[in-house]
Nucleic acid binder design. Structure first.
Length: 123
DNA sequence: ATTCTTACA
DNA sequence: TGTAAGTA
């Protein structure tokens, strides 16, 4: 199949699919026409990439995770044990992001809740 | 009609 | 990531 069909089947834009390729996440063949040619397995791959991306992992991390996923049918299956440390580190980064966002929200809360007071009194 | 590459208000 | 341009 070509990129258009893969896009329909996965719900991922052709733009993103080409980006995945640029990041070395998926490697399609090429027809003499120059068009990218994907086999049915590409649907799964794109779905996996989508899940990994939603887990907050960047493409470089995903690139090393993909070839190490235990169960290709279940993206949530544990990958190679060698990568566990790295994944734990990524998880830690997520926690840091969450902390920063929560702090930002607390500030916004005070800005909203005390909106009846003058700015000078809210700082 | 589709895809390809490249570039950017 | 979307989208426009100019092709094949």
């Amino acid at each position: 199949m070509r990129i258009g069909e893969l896009s329909r089947l996965t719900g991922v834009s052709t733009r993103s699919i080409r980006y995945y390729e640029e990041q070395g996440l998926i490697v399609p063949e090429r027809q003499l026409s120059g068009y990218r040619a994907y086999d049915e397995s590409a649907v799964r791959q794109v779905h996996q990439i989508k899940v990994l991306l939603s887990a907050g992992l960047n493409t470089s991390v995903i690139a090393e995770i993909l070839p190490c996923i235990a169960d290709p049918d279940n993206v949530l299956a544990p990958p190679c044990p060698e990568l566990l440390d790295g994944l734990a580190a990524e998880r830690a980064k997520l926690s840091e992001s969450i902390d920063r966002l929560e702090a930002a929200r607390r500030i916004m809360d005070t800005l909203i809740v005390d909106s009846d007071k003058p700015f000078s009194a809210r700082l």
